[in-house]
């Protein structure tokens, strides 16, 4: 009854070098095709889409390819009366897009152009009795919202606005038998959630709670023969999981537990050499989301043609330095 391992085969024709110029063109052009079907269908996550695109450009040193004022105007207009940000005009405010908005403003060093006290109030209002955060007023609880809350607050220099200890207690209650984390207590671990929770513990100075060698082992077992990383056991590899596993390993000081050369090869093979951009797997359709995580992954793996990325915030290290944010990572 042996289950065949899920993986992909990288074709010999797959790209093996980083096509930086093509990626910059792909991202810059993406925002201009506002009447495209795909573009319209993703409006519900526009704010995050802008963060992915701008961070990708920023890592390539090409942030100036986008009209800054247009972006800032859009972000400002998406802030609601209650302080939270919506994904787009006319949409509802949500913690996910509030973090994206503050990340965008931080990239431009323009947090001053919005009312950040109201953002802090909005975030405080989403915390529950047990320390957890809901994503918006409708009440979905998820440990990734705890990450969004503390990441947004520290970017605004206001981490002390909430009871961090209580917040951490909830995140720790999502820890599992494999050392990983799920979205709620009793939920299964997966790498995206692990990134959020480990990132949360890094921001709040609580990485000592992590069972580092156990989690590190589980994370390095995400690497498949193709070199790519999956998000959970017995799943296909994916560029975005490559980032989430990789950044988690970096935060707990175990990045060297995977085969870097093979992962670089996999990420490069996910590029589209016609259109630019990265896909989830070699040969699939590209998008800005996977393009950012492809580039950020390569940065963590030591590619000097991309700027150094901060593994907790997935933003350029220079932006985090400028904001004077110091997050301690573990070393071995």
């Amino acid at each position: 009854m042996a289950t065949p391992m899920k993986d992909v085969v990288i074709s010999e024709k797959a790209p093996t070098t980083l096509l930086l110029q093509k990626h910059a063109d792909f991202i810059a052009a993406y925002g201009t095709k506002k009447d495209d079907y795909e573009y319209c269908m993703t409006e519900y996550l526009r704010m995050s889409g802008i963060y992915w695109g701008l961070t990708a450009l920023s890592l390539m040193g090409k942030l100036d390819k986008v009209d800054k004022q247009e972006v800032l105007d859009f972000v400002k207009k998406c802030q609601h009366e209650n302080g939270g940000f919506a994904a787009s005009l006319g949409h509802d405010p949500h913690l996910l897009y509030t973090l994206s908005a503050i990340q965008i403003l931080s990239l431009y060093d323009a947090v001053d152009c919005i009312n950040s006290d109201k953002v802090v109030e909005y975030i405080k209002g989403l915390q529950q009795e047990d320390g957890s955060f809901v994503g918006d007023k409708w009440g979905e609880v998820d440990s990734k919202f705890s990450f969004c809350a503390v990441a947004t607050l520290i970017l605004l220099g206001k981490l002390d606005a909430i009871d961090v200890e209580k917040t951490a207690e909830f995140v720790l209650s999502c820890m599992n038998f494999d050392g990983g984390f799920g979205s709620r207590p009793d939920s299964e671990s997966h790498s995206g959630q692990i990134y959020c929770c480990v990132g949360f513990l890094a921001i709040t100075g609580r990485l000592h709670h992590v069972n580092v060698d156990m989690l590190g082992w589980w994370l390095c077992e995400r690497q498949l023969p193709s070199g790519g990383l999956n998000g959970r056991p017995e799943k296909l590899p994916d560029v975005c999981y490559s980032w989430w596993v990789l950044s988690s390993l970096k935060i707990i000081g175990r990045l060297h537990w995977i085969d870097k050369d093979k992962l670089v090869q996999f990420i490069l093979a996910c590029q589209d050499d016609e259109t630019g951009g990265f896909a989830d797997r070699p040969g699939d359709m590209v998008d800005p989301f996977h393009t950012l995580f492809g580039l950020a992954g390569l940065s963590l793996l030591g590619d000097n043609s991309v700027k150094l990325v901060n593994p907790v915030f997935c933003m350029p290290q220079e932006t985090i330095d400028k904001l004077n944010i110091r997050v301690h990572l573990l070393t071995l």
């Binding site: 079907y37 319209c40 269908m41 993703t42 994916d238 797997r281 699939d284």
Partner: peptide
């Protein structure tokens, strides 16, 4: 947007597909 295989199409098919999407988008 995961696991969408990129299909290379000839110009004619692409044009038809584009029209269809435009129509869908209008209704949407």
């Amino acid at each position: 947007m995961h696991g969408r295989v990129k299909v290379r199409t000839v110009a004619e098919q692409a044009e038809a597909k584009k029209k269809e999407k435009e129509k869908k988008l209008q209704a949407y």
